[in-house]
Amino acid sequence: MNKIHVKTNINGDQVEFLADSRETLLDCLRDHVGLTGSKEGCGTGDCGACSCIFDGELVSSCLVLGVEAEGKSIETIEGMAGQEDLHPLQKKFIEMAALQCGFCTPGILVAAKALLEKNNNPTETEVRYWLAGNLCRCTGYDKIIKAVMETAKDIRETA
C-alpha cells in the first residue's frame, strides 16, 4: 500500500506525515504525530473521546480520514493550554473534580471549549445536549456540567 504524504497544521505547528488512506485522523495524530491525548473509545463516532477541532469545527477524529487533513488546521487537547497557563476549562475541571479516570476528559474539554467559543452563556440543558456525544462512565456528568457552567460564568464576568 502506497502511503500518501499529508501536510497539515496541528496546534499551530506545520506537520507532515505519511498516511495509509484507510487511517483515520485519530490514527494519524496518535501513531504518526505522537499526539496521544485524543483517545479512541469506540472508533465509530459514539463516544467523543477523540474530539478535535478540524478546520474550525468540532469533529470526532475517528470519523475523519488522515488524508483529509491535507492543507487543513487541527486543534487537539495538546494545544488547549497556553504556554503560561491552562485553559480556564482545564483549570476548572481540576478544581471541581470534573474528572475521575480522565480518559474522556480530553474529548470533553475540546468539545466544551468549542461550545463556549460559540456561546458563552449556555443553559444547563444546552451544555448537556452539546456534550451528549461525549460519553463519561465515571462521573455521572454532574461535575462536568457544573464545571462548564462555572467556566462560562467566569468567561462572561472577565469579558
Binding site: 496518535r30 485524543s38 479512541e40 493550554a81 475541571f93 481540576i94 474528572l99 480522565g102
Partner: peptide, 13 residues
C-alpha cells in the same frame, strides 16, 4: 490533574 486535562497522561494504548 494536570496530566489528565492536557492529554499527557499515558493510558493503555
Amino acid at each position: 490533574g494536570f496530566e489528565k486535562v492536557t492529554g499527557r497522561a499515558k493510558y493503555g494504548a
